[in-house]
Nucleic acid binder design. Structure first.
Lengths: 230, 230
DNA sequence: GAATGTGAATGTATTCACAGCT
DNA sequence: AGCTGTGAATACATTCACATTC
């Protein structure tokens, strides 16, 4: 359908592709720093650990930015991916919860590869509020609504204890935040128009444990379980 | 194939299922604490934000542990999922890199829901080595090989700067570690038998930015890009 | 009646393999 | 000759819908 001739790209990039674009971007930035002008799908695939056909298909969703027989222009591709990811503008981020993790996040210097700026740090604990962390003064959680409006925060990072997370999440959504990165080990309840991504240490460890167990259980590998069940 | 009558489960649980089991487990533990004895797929699905048919299919990969017309026994299911994930044994974890993030990880009290124990903290910086963090004395990275052997470490957590990550990774693998959780923003090169999972703040933010951009660009939504390209 | 477990249908992602451009 | 871009084939994952069991 829609056989319009110069239709450079399709809206609706597959989610799996979106998740890999930042990876390509980082690798390309490395190449750029080393002054390398062009790269083939094979090389970029090797640098990012993906299959080269997959990489080409991913890039083809953005448009036709390669040159057959040559490869991709590094700078041009950096620009195109950055634009697609929305990194040509700056996004303001608020970090809620300034415990160990919140501090670690705030101090994570190369905050993304630019494109993001920490607009505020918020916490509820009196002994933390007012402290300076990563060049910012920690503000009280009660000013969340003000901060989001005034600083035009579009991404909220939740680094609170599990119990506080849903409440913070609700408040963020109520003031119009629609993108949330959640480090608290809870499933957040949000309306459809809100995107939540979660980072969960214990889930990652458990997935690793699953595979580790498989590896160590290589011996007879099938029936000891039946015994337990019997 | 293999129509053996009482074959309780199939080895080879889909990866997508494995990634959700920890979620179910956490929700079940919550129910357990509240003294709730049984749960239906619908209830558990609601608590974890998944579709109930998906949940049932996931659980069916472990075996047939539900009761039609009733639901699942909470305690029994906790046990079965724990066992499947390998949480009935304890796994020793070494954290390499004791900067802000490493400290945050070390202090993350509920380290998983048990099943994991931090066996060692390692760092290269003289000003960190010897310090006590989260009840452990930080050891020098040179003792990595000793620590892994003596403490029987099976999971390595890399929380070093990007430059150091591949080197640390290689050393872990050389002493037999086959499960790695990587927080450094680099693609680690590892042999096939090693599992790596990565947690990458800037990738998560970029994925959110992509969707955020889509949401804010709702107006004409198709052709302004062509103008730029022309 | 209520809820599981699962074939069948659908949707999404990866990989192959090669036509087409430079 | 080399490498992209992409249909076709395959693999994986989700969802539907219902027969089966308690």
């Amino acid at each position: 359908m829609t056989s319009r001739p110069s239709r450079p790209r399709d809206r609706g990039i597959p989610e799996a592709t979106v998740a890999r674009l930042p990876l390509y971007l980082r690798a390309l930035q490395g190449l750029s720093e080393r002054g390398i002008p062009t790269v083939s799908s094979g090389e970029l695939a090797a640098a990012t650990g993906v299959n080269s056909a997959k990489l080409r298909k991913d890039l083809s969703h953005l448009g036709s930015y390669g040159t057959r027989g040559v490869g991709y222009d590094v700078e041009y591709l950096i620009y195109q991916i950055s634009r697609e990811l929305g990194l040509t503008q700056d996004w303001s981020v608020a970090i809620i919860g300034v415990g160990n993790l919140g501090r670690a996040l705030a101090n994570y210097g190369g905050f993304g590869t630019r494109g993001f700026r920490i607009a505020a740090l918020l916490d509820a604990a009196p002994e933390v509020v007012g402290r300076r962390v990563a060049g910012l003064t920690v503000r009280h959680i009660d000013s969340l609504e003000d901060v989001v409006s005034n600083e035009d925060v579009s991404i909220g990072v939740i680094a609170t204890p599990a119990k506080a997370a849903q409440g913070v999440c609700d408040r963020l959504i109520a003031v119009g935040v629609t993108s949330i990165l959640n480090f608290a080990p809870v499933v957040l309840n949000v309306p459809d128009h809100v995107d939540v991504r979660k980072v969960d240490l214990s889930i990652e460890l458990q997935i690793l444990a699953f595979h580790e167990q498989r590896k160590s259980a290589g011996r007879q590998g099938s029936d000891w379980v039946d015994v337990l069940d019997a």
